[in-house]
Amino acid sequence: MSDKKNILVVDDEDVIREFLYEVLSEDYCISTAKDGDEAIEHLKSESFDLVITDLKMERIQGEEVVRFSNETNPATKVIVMSGYASLYSTSQSVNNGAFALLSKPFTIQELISSVEGALSS
């Protein structure tokens, strides 16, 4: 298990969390968090190679997770997800410290290429 990269998936939507787990768990070690608080707890106790977080969640927002991750462990890559395709541009997300933006709904290919791209950079 140790050769697998650690990925933290953060989303308040069960179905998204579960789906990412299903797709990625074969090749990666996946932890999940259902909101920003949980994510920050995870980030405090473990180190991750990649964080995939939704931007819009109750209480603590995705941006906060991105900021916290970048502050505590700059090596950790971050991919943000959003259902607001029109409201967030990739450049905006990158400016905010994310590696890439995944617009929901996304295909498996998009997901895997983003994840691989983030981990290989």
């Binding site: 939507e13 179905v15 998204i16 789906f19 299903e22 797709v23 819009k56 959003s82 259902g83 607001y84 395709a85 029109s86 617009s103 929901k104 709904p105 996304f106 295909t107 498996i108 997901l111």
Partner: peptide, 18 residues
């Protein structure tokens, strides 16, 4: 509305593909 739809659609698209 888009956000509301995009979450389940994400699940649908993903699981169908998967």
């Amino acid at each position: 509305v888009a956000h509301e739809l995009n979450n389940p659609l994400g699940g649908i698209l993903g699981y169908a593909q998967f």
